[in-house]
């Protein structure tokens, strides 16, 4: 057991009772929150929850399948734009939300097919996904002219699309979600995705994914077509990132090319690295922590937030390679072992 962080065993083992307790408590805490805190805190926490979904999509791919996809922001932005364009065109939001899941999935399937079936090595895949999101950003930025219209919506280039409608409650006669509604939705979806991914990793499919991370060639020799599994995981992650992007559009009533850009992509990496990619809960915590830090730095008048984020990233890679939660878990495990050794004597 030495070296295994306390409470953060491999996700492929079935969760213990206290994990379910933790999920229930987390859920209850989140659902009770809007009645306890004021609107500005609700807004801040909602965006943390929404971005945590994006972090989850990356840590699922990176921590469990071993694919480091920088370009999760490509699906994030695509989801946001899909929702914005369709919701503004149709005036109907449930279908737009679904489309904002499907389109990033299709895009992930096509892109993933070329990269994964081309068997380009993992590191090339990372760079290619990064390039894709940068090119998408450039493409969107170049659409400022009048001729770039989808349906009745101008894409607006640099300026993004304003006044994206909020989500309507289906069968609710056009009633829209307000700030607390978006909060509840984000909280429920985050917990669903978190639990869903955790359980997915227990299935046969999930075990094959983890074994691909451990040793792709051996998995193939055991008769699994690793490309199919990797592509499926890539598409799932694309859907989660797309969901996150659509929620982002709902939250801010706004989409902009910044959703695709390098600093957005960098932030996702930082959340996952700081939280610890070997867990699913770590990136959620990392997102909350870094979002809080960024907001706090903003209010402190430190001019360059990127400068600080850059230093954080370098320090974590060089010193705390495991990420925050696993490092804490390792320390706790060490303490526990020492205490056990003490009482055993």
């Amino acid at each position: 057991m030495a070296g295994r962080p306390l409470g953060l065993g491999p996700a492929a083992s079935p969760p213990k009772w206290w994990w379910w307790l933790f999920v229930v408590l987390l859920g209850a805490g989140l659902l009770a929150m809007p009645s306890l805190v004021d609107i500005s805190v609700q807004l801040d926490v909602s965006i943390m929850l929404i971005l945590a979904l994006l972090a989850l999509s990356m840590s699922f791919l990176w921590g469990y399948v071993g694919i480091l996809s920088f370009g999760q922001t490509a699906f994030f932005g695509l989801g946001g734009y899909t929702y914005a364009v369709l919701a503004l065109n149709l005036g109907e939001t449930t279908g737009s939300m679904l489309a904002a899941l499907v389109l990033p999935m299709l895009f992930a399937a096509v892109l993933g097919y070329f990269m994964i079936y081309g068997r380009i090595s993992d590191i090339y895949l990372s760079v290619m996904t990064l390039v894709v999101t940068l090119i998408l950003e450039k493409g969107i930025r170049a659409t400022s002219g009048d001729q770039f219209v989808i349906g009745t919506v101008r894409l607006n280039g640099q300026n993004g699309i304003p006044s994206v409608p909020s989500l309507q409650i289906p069968w609710g006669g056009g009633a829209e979600l307000f700030i607390d509604g978006v909060f509840y939705l984000a909280a429920v979806l985050l917990i669903l995705v978190y639990v869903g991914l955790r359980l997915l990793l227990l299935t046969h499919f999930g075990r094959v994914l983890v074994s691909i991370r451990e040793n792709e060639r051996r998995t193939e020799l055991l008769g699994y077509d690793s490309r199919r599994y990797k592509l499926a995981a890539f598409v799932i992650a694309g859907a989660i990132a797309g969901l996150s992007g659509a929620l982002y559009a709902v939250w801010g009533n706004f989409v902009a090319p910044e959703m695709f850009n390098l600093s957005q992509a960098a932030q996702v990496i930082i959340w996952v690295i700081v939280g610890g990619k070997s867990t699913l809960i770590g990136p959620i915590a990392g997102t909350a922590l870094i979002q809080y830090l960024t907001t706090w730095l903003g209010t402190q008048g430190v001019g360059q937030v990127t400068l600080v984020l850059g230093v954080v990233l370098m320090v974590f890679v060089l010193v705390f390679n495991q990420g925050l939660l696993p490092t804490v878990g390792l320390i706790l495990a060490g303490l526990r072992n020492r205490m056990r050794a003490g009482t055993g004597r």
């Binding site: 480091l68 590191i123 990372s126 600093s263 960098a266 990496i269 690295i273 001019g303 360059q304 937030v305 990127t306 400068l307 600080v308 984020l309 850059g310 230093v311 954080v312 990233l313 370098m314 320090v315 890679v317 060089l318 390679n321």
Partner: peptide, 27 residues
């Protein structure tokens, strides 16, 4: 030099460096 052979870590650390340089030069 601490990261030779750890290709993903190099990529992340140099990304941190890149953010740092952009922030630093802007300042």
């Amino acid at each position: 030099r601490f990261l030779y052979g750890r290709i993903v870590d190099t990529l992340l650390a140099t990304w941190g460096l890149s953010l740092f340089l952009v922030g630093g030069i802007t300042t």
